[in-house]
Simulated scan of single mutants.
Amino acid sequence: MDIAAIIALAMILDAAIGEPRWIWSRVPHPAVLMGRAVALLDARLNVGSARRAKGVAAVVILASCALGIGAAVSQLGGFASILVAAILIAQRSLVEHVRAVATGLRHSTGAGRSAVTMIVGRDTEGMDAAAVTRAAIESAAENFSDGVIAPVFWLAVAGLPGLVLYKAINTADSMIGHRTPRYERFGWAAARLDDALNIIPARATAALIAVLARPRPHWRDIAHEARLHRSPNAGWPEAAMARSIRVSLSGPRTYNGQVADYPFVNPDGMRTHGPVQIDDAVTVLWHAWRVVLIFAILAALLL
């Protein structure tokens, strides 16, 4: 089956069913299995000396397994490829998690905090409604790149093996790619490879969001603010989203009790935002998703 058709059908399937609890409560999700593999490599290799070299070895093992699994599944035919791709593309689950924050905020700030805890790693206890909203919108933008555009991009470029490889490395980065005493050296390879794999998708996500915005933001403003971000990639979709819905994002936040004084993205944007702005961000995600789907369908029909 043509790869563009696989992309289109996988996107539609993901949007239709998302992550059914009745399935994943009975069998482990592929992302969970990837996480277990990373945890096993961490436990076995992240000890003693030469931890950077061991981290490189862990990434090579993980990548080799991911490519092999992706290649094996792709040999099972188009239906298997569509099913696995739909599982690894996360549009519907992302939207549901982000919408849950808006729903929570409409009840109380505490309910919003509880919901946003599911999608961010920062401390949430002291957040006001505006901080909860910023966190939800930032997560929406960044995870649209990581969970939708990047998987679709690598599926298009390298087929199912490329998609499985990307998700495995992205999972590894989320688990061991932190600059902490334990992972500074061991997680270096996972973090750097994840950065490399997201260079094009992150900027493509920003361009897609910006093109759909009215009025359309200046690309130079997005690029300037993206380069101020702590991540070489996450700042691009975040800056585009901030200007698309005219809000201010990022700014100071707390991790493990330590305040990180990050600059605001789109500092002149609205700062007293709430669930309405989260709804606006979700609308942007669906508009961008539809554009990608249309391109995939056209490619399947014409190429």
Results as ranks from 00 to 15, higher is better:
147 G>E: 01
201 P>L: 07
202 A>G: 13
219 W>S: 15
170 N>E: 07
174 S>Y: 03
209 I>S: 08
155 L>E: 12
228 L>E: 12
190 A>Q: 07
187 G>S: 12
143 N>M: 10
142 E>W: 07
196 A>D: 12
155 L>P: 14
147 G>A: 00
172 A>G: 15
149 I>P: 01
219 W>A: 15
227 R>A: 15
237 P>I: 05
203 R>D: 10
166 Y>T: 07
205 T>G: 02
229 H>C: 05
194 D>R: 03
218 H>G: 11
228 L>N: 13
159 G>M: 05
198 N>G: 13
167 K>V: 10
156 A>M: 15
154 W>S: 12
138 E>I: 11
223 A>K: 11
241 M>K: 05
250 S>I: 00
156 A>H: 05
183 Y>V: 08
142 E>I: 09
153 F>P: 01
185 R>F: 09
171 T>S: 11
168 A>S: 15
157 V>A: 15
188 W>F: 15
201 P>K: 06
175 M>N: 07
141 A>C: 03
171 T>Q: 02
191 A>H: 00
148 V>P: 09
250 S>H: 11
173 D>M: 02
174 S>E: 10
197 L>A: 02
242 A>N: 09
224 H>F: 08
203 R>K: 13
153 F>V: 00
202 A>V: 04
145 S>P: 12
223 A>E: 15
163 L>G: 13
187 G>H: 04
171 T>M: 05
251 G>R: 04
162 G>C: 10
152 V>D: 01
211 V>N: 10
